[in-house]
């Protein structure tokens, strides 16, 4: 009996390691899986780096928001799969993908806030902007309604596109964007590979999975064209060596998709693209009806407690 009590003391002391002494933010595993240790430390120097010569700060802030909002809003949608995935391996993979994108969003929004110079941090941008302030593409904000065919179709499209962007951003004149690209290329390579493998299994699996994977592609396809539309900010930043023109990634995207779809016995959807309003869409803050709901949920607790720190 005494032995038991002694063992228990020993066990428990090890496990607890004196809780109240270990609350510093210096443990690299605090946000294990985000990569950017505690979110931001990898990017700390880059976040506060000066705006590169010849670059308009407002354009750079807007561009960081575009890349950051795509990642944030899509991460929010992907995390709806938590506790809903078809298998445990998919739970882990989808949550991991959401975490990678959230990590990218955090540094990009931090950079946007810094460059903008109005004292907004990542949380002010994520939680206190209204719909029209978000610059993400429509593909990111749609609800896949927990249909795995839709989930994989969107992931394949999004990751193929973003990987092509990040590859070209490795040499960005903005040090933060180059750093995000450096890490993000590895992450997106995995995301695209995961999506492509599932597209094959579903496309060439059973009759039902073939039908549902094709339906998933049809569902996502109206939002593809927007991915390759160049905004004014991007156009100016391309000239300054900071941004990539998304239109330039179209050929690579088409080639990758063609290869995957062919192997998966799927066809490229022939559906009309979602149109713009007077030429404006996500990059200009004009969204689909879905974003309002995403933000209402995401921002609810933060807005309920103004001035709180978490």
């Amino acid at each position: 009996m005494n032995d038991h009590v002694h063992d228990l003391d020993h066990d428990v002391t090890n496990a607890y390691q004196s809780l109240s002494e270990t609350t510093a933010h210096d443990d690299p595993r605090w946000a294990f899986g985000t990569g950017f240790e505690d979110g931001l430390s990898l990017g700390e120097a880059e976040i506060s780096a000066p705006v590169p010569d010849g670059v308009d700060a407002a354009d750079l802030a807007a561009y960081c928001q575009m890349l950051g909002d795509d990642a944030l809003i899509y991460s929010q949608r992907l995390s709806e799969w938590v506790a809903n995935a078809p298998e445990l391996e998919e739970e882990v993979a989808l949550a991991n993908t959401a975490l990678d994108l959230l990590g990218q969003a955090r540094v990009l929004l931090s950079r946007a806030g810094h460059v903008e110079g109005r004292g907004r941090d990542e949380d002010a941008l994520a939680y206190l902007r209204d719909q029209a302030g978000f610059r993400n593409v429509a593909l990111a904000e749609q609800s896949d309604e927990l249909d795995f065919g839709r989930c994989i179709a969107r992931l394949l499209i999004f990751s193929t596109w973003r990987l092509a962007l990040l590859h070209r951003l490795l040499g960005s004149a903005d040090p933060l964007i180059a750093a995000v690209a450096g890490k993000g290329v590895k992450e997106l390579t995995y995301h695209r590979d995961y999506a492509a493998r599932w597209a094959l299994r579903l496309g060439d699996g059973t009759d039902e999975s073939h039908r549902r994977m094709q339906a998933g592609l049809d569902w996502a396809w109206p939002y593809v064209e927007e991915l390759f539309r160049t905004s004014d900010e991007e156009r100016r930043l391309v000239a300054a060596g900071v941004a990539v023109d998304p239109a330039e990634t179209r050929a690579e995207f088409d080639a990758v998709l063609a290869q995957v779809l062919e192997q998966a016995t799927l066809v490229r959807p022939a559906v009309a693209p979602a149109g713009t309003i007077g030429g404006r869409s996500g990059r200009q803050g004009v969204h689909t009806e879905r974003l309002g709901y995403v933000l209402a949920e995401m921002q609810s607790v933060a807005r309920e407690h103004p001035g709180a720190t978490w």
Partner: peptide, 10 residues
């Protein structure tokens, strides 16, 4: 989906 900061969400 409602975590009140991005760090807490991660």
């Amino acid at each position: 989906s409602r975590a009140p900061s991005l760090r807490r969400k991660a």
